[in-house]
C-alpha cells in the first residue's frame, strides 16, 4: 500500500518534472511567437493602439483572441468583417451605427487615436490563430435561396459601409431594411437625396449620415437602382 512519504515523492517529483517540461515549451513558444504574430509588422501605431486598448478596458466588454467579456462582438477579425473605414466612422459615435442596441462607451478619441486602434485591430486580425474564429459550418446555403447571379457586383464602398446594417440577397446586417427591391420603392433621385443626408429626408431616422463623396454616391445610386 502507498505510504505517505511515497505520496509526497509522487507530488514533489511530478511537480518538478512537469514544471521543467513546461518551462522548456515556454522557451520554444516565446521563440516562435514573434513570427506567428508578425512582430515585424507591429508598427508604432499598433503599439499605441494596444495601449489605448488596455487603457480603455475594451476587453471588459469585447473578446479579442477569444479572451475578455461576452457582452460585445469578438474583435479578432473585425477589420476583415467591417473594414477600416466603417470602424473609423463607428468609433466616432457607436450609438449612431446601432441605434437602440446595447451601448458601447463613446470614447473621446481623436482621429489619430482611432487610426491607432484600427491598426492594432488590423494587426491582431493577421495573427496565425490556428483557425480561430472558425467560419460558420452550419450556415444555411444562402446561394441556393436568394443570391441573384444576374446582379452586377456592388461598388466596394457598399461592402465596407452598408452591409454592416443592410442585407442584400440574404447576406448582411439587420439594423436597416434589406435592400432587395429598393429600386421599386425609391427613384434614383430619392436614393441620392437619402444617401446625402438621411435625416434631412426623414427627421429622426436611425440611418446615420455617412461620408460619401459625389462620385461614390452616384455609383451607389446607380447600383441600388438595379435592385428591382
Amino acid at each position: 500500500m502507498l505510504s505517505k512519504s511515497q505520496a509526497r515523492l509522487f507530488f514533489v517529483g511530478g511537480t518538478i518534472f512537469f514544471s521543467v517540461i513546461f518551462i522548456a515549451l515556454t522557451v520554444d513558444t516565446v521563440r516562435q511567437m514573434p513570427a506567428l504574430s508578425n512582430e515585424d509588422r507591429m508598427t508604432e501605431a499598433v503599439v499605441r493602439g494596444k495601449h489605448l486598448w488596455d487603457k480603455s478596458n475594451c476587453m471588459g466588454c469585447h473578446t479579442i483572441l477569444g479572451e475578455g467579456g461576452y457582452y460585445a462582438p469578438e474583435l479578432t477579425r473585425v477589420v476583415e468583417r467591417r473594414g477600416k473605414e466603417w470602424i473609423a466612422i463607428f468609433l466616432k459615435d457607436p450609438a449612431a451605427m446601432f441605434p437602440g442596441e446595447r451601448k458601447m462607451v463613446k470614447y473621446p478619441f481623436d482621429d489619430a487615436q482611432r487610426a491607432d486602434l484600427i491598426e492594432f485591430l488590423a494587426w491582431i486580425g493577421e495573427i496565425d490563430t490556428q483557425g480561430f474564429p472558425p467560419d460558420p459550418d452550419l450556415a444555411l446555403p444562402v446561394a441556393a435561396v436568394a443570391v441573384r447571379t444576374d446582379l452586377a457586383p456592388p461598388p466596394p464602398v457598399f461592402g465596407t459601409l452598408c452591409v454592416a446594417c443592410h442585407a442584400v440577397g440574404g447576406k448582411g446586417g439587420a439594423v436597416g431594411p434589406a435592400l432587395d427591391g429598393v429600386a421599386r420603392r425609391k427613384t434614383p433621385e430619392e436614393l441620392d437625396r437619402w444617401l446625402a443626408d438621411p435625416a434631412a429626408v426623414k427627421p429622426g431616422t436611425a440611418m446615420p449620415k455617412l461620408p460619401l463623396d459625389e462620385s461614390t454616391r452616384a455609383a451607389l445610386v446607380a447600383w441600388l437602382s438595379t435592385l428591382q
Partner: peptide, 10 residues
C-alpha cells in the same frame, strides 16, 4: 494556448 497565436503543438 490553442487559438491565441501560439505554436500548433499546444
Amino acid at each position: 494556448y490553442y487559438y491565441i497565436g501560439t505554436p500548433g503543438y499546444w
